[in-house]
Design a protein around this nucleic acid. Structure first.
Lengths: 165, 165
DNA sequence: CGCAATAACTACAATAATTGTAGTGAGTGA
DNA sequence: TCACTCACTACAATTATTGTAGTTATTGCG
C-alpha cells in the first residue's frame, strides 16, 4: 500500500521526516550539503538506482528542500541545489554522522569523514546548549513540555513518558 | 525488490540510517526516548500498523538500539527500552525536532513540544561547538576532511564537493 | 561527416514491502 | 463465565523498489 503520510501528526520530528522522504533522500541531502549538484554525481556517490533518484529529487523539490536549476541551455544541463530550508538540515546529517562515528556505524573502525573548524583545525561536534546563554546543558537536564502547537496526543505522550523517565 | 542495504557504504550517516531502519523506526526511538515502553503505547502514539511496528521493533532489536524485556511473568508482559546506543540517538531526534520547529514542519504554526532546561527553565537548542574548547562554531566555518575510515568514494565525494562550495 | 561519449533521465518486469482489517492466545478482574 | 487488556500474527490487496536497458539531446574528436 501507499506509504502513510506523517504530515498530519502534530510532531516536528514526523513533519521533518515527511519533508525529507526516506533514507535515500537524506543521502542526497548529505551530498548536496557537501557540494555535489549533478544527477550523475549523485548517482555515483549514493549508488542508488536512477528511478529512485529521479523520484526522490522530485519529492525533495516538491517539499521545498531542493531546487532544480538549468545551468546550460545547450546542451540542456541541470543541477540540484539545496534551498535555505535544505541547507538547514545540515544539523540533522551532522547528528547522524556524529552518532555513526561514535558507534562505528560505518564498520570501518574510524570516522570516514572528519568535521573540523576551518580556522583552528579543531574537531567539531554538536552540543546541547541553553538557547539564551549558550552554556552547555547535560541531556538528562532536558525536560519536555507541551508547546503551543501541541494536541491531545502530544500531551498524552509527554504525560505518559513522564511517568517512567 | 529487497531494500538495498546501506551497511557497506563507508559512511557514518548511511550506517546510522541502516541501524535505525526507516521513518517509523525514528518515531519509535522518539517515543522510547520520551519514556514510552509498551507495544500498545507505541501503536497508539505512532498510529502505525501492528505488522510494521512488530517488524521495526525486531529490526531495532537486531541492530542493538532497543532491548526487549519481560517485566511480568504472569501474565507475560514485555517492554521495549533503548540501549545506551539507542539513547544516544537523542541528538538526532532533537536535530529533527529543531529543524521541524524552525520550518513549521508540523504545520501547526508553533512547536508541539518545547525542550527546556529542568534547572533554569530556559529553552534548549543544538549548537555546533569546538570539541576541545566548547566554543561555538559557525556552520560555514566547518570543513570536511577524509578521515582514517575513508575510502576512494569518500575522497572523491569530498574532493568533488570542494570544487563548488 | 561519422562515431563515441556525456548528461539526464524514462521504461519495464520482477520482486519486496506496506497497509488495513481481522483474529489469536494468554491471562486477569468482576 | 464474560468482558477486557496486552501483545502480537495472518492475510490479501496494493504500492514501492530494484536492476537492466534504452532514450534524447548535444558536444568533441578524428
Amino acid at each position: 500500500m501507499k506509504a502513510k503520510s506523517f504530515a498530519d501528526m502534530a510532531c516536528s520530528i514526523a513533519g521533518a521526516l515527511e519533508a525529507i522522504g526516506d533514507r535515500w533522500s537524506l543521502l542526497i541531502v548529505r551530498d548536496l550539503s557537501i557540494g555535489l549538484s549533478r544527477y550523475d554525481e549523485l548517482q555515483t556517490s549514493t549508488g542508488m538506482p536512477p528511478t529512485t533518484l529521479a523520484d526522490r529529487l522530485r519529492h525533495l523539490e516538491s517539499t521545498g528542500l531542493v531546487e532544480k536549476r538549468r545551468y546550460s541551455q545547450r546542451p540542456p544541463r541541470h543541477e540540484y541545489v539545496l534551498t535555505a530550508e535544505g541547507r538547514d538540515l545540515w544539523v540533522v546529517t551532522m547528528a547522524l554522522a556524529q552518532w555513526g562515528d561514535r558507534w562505528d556505524a560505518s564498520g570501518r573502525g574510524a570516522p570516514p569523514v572528519d568535521f573540523i573548524d576551518r580556522g583552528s583545525g579543531h574537531p567539531i561536534r554538536l552540543a546541547c546548549v541553553d538557547a539564551q546563554t549558550g552554556e552547555p546543558v547535560a541531556i538528562d537536564q532536558v525536560r519536555l513540555r507541551p508547546g503551543r502547537g501541541a494536541d491531545d496526543l502530544v500531551r498524552w505522550r509527554i504525560a505518559q513518558g513522564a511517568k517512567r523517565p
